[in-house]
Design a protein around this nucleic acid. Sequence first.
DNA 1: GTCTATGCAAAGAGTTTGCAGATGT
DNA 2: ACATCTGCAAACTCTTTGCATAGAC
Lengths: 132, 132
Amino acid sequence: MATLKYSRQRASIKEYLMQTHEHPTADTVYLHVKKEFPHISLGTVYRNLNLLADMGEAVKIPTPDGGDRFDGDTHPHYHVICTSCGGVSDLMMDKEHIRSINELAEANFDGTIEHHNTLFYGTCAKCCRNPH
Amino acid sequence: MATLKYSRQRASIKEYLMQTHEHPTADTVYLHVKKEFPHISLGTVYRNLNLLADMGEAVKIPTPDGGDRFDGDTHPHYHVICTSCGGVSDLMMDKEHIRSINELAEANFDGTIEHHNTLFYGTCAKCCRNPH
DNA sequence: GTCTATGCAAAGAGTTTGCAGATGT
DNA sequence: ACATCTGCAAACTCTTTGCATAGAC
């Protein structure tokens, strides 16, 4: 097994992910980290985002349109795509509620359910207040 | 507004989608319809799959890994990806249960929830019976 | 006849990968 | 020293698009 070695680039990517709530795409991460490492390459960003996701230190959010997004918050929670502004918001839910959805599904399925991945669509708080 | 015109290719694609339960990828649809129309192009398949999805006569299922899948069953239901064989199974649920998930989400969200898209992961009936 | 759909091939977006050299342990 | 990581560029996958022609109405 390959041993993981420290790298400034990965540390910077992880720090940005943990600090922001923007749910950035790989390209957004690239543009941000580029400020600190002007010569960093997009390939390195992808490699590290996938590494972090595999290690469970970040979450990859697959979205139907365009690129996946990444989240440094690994606490299980949902995401809402605003149909008005396109932004991604967090939706926190109790463990029990999340589990109850799996149980509801398993009751309707001939097989077993382990987990699920949901993307909600709606209107975020900001767009509710300022409808355009 | 452009008027929709009949085409044998689209009819064949739709018929295949309605008849199969395989949740095929665009490429699988292409390979199948190719038997009837050897000169059909992948571009035509994509154009028609998107047309059918836009008209509500088929459903596009975005999956995290690789290509999207298509379903001729437009009745609202969920899908389960088998973590053992990778296949996609249907998971039918009552309208009320589907709505209750939206309500549960909205109770935990500062904004409004319109709908959601869930992909469940688990073990399908076949793989439960024949663990390898 | 007119407008849409097709086939083809090229382009596009997003992501991965091979390699030589830099960096961490 | 040795293995891993980086930057760069090329390759790859999936999907869309421009254009001339074929087909529907």
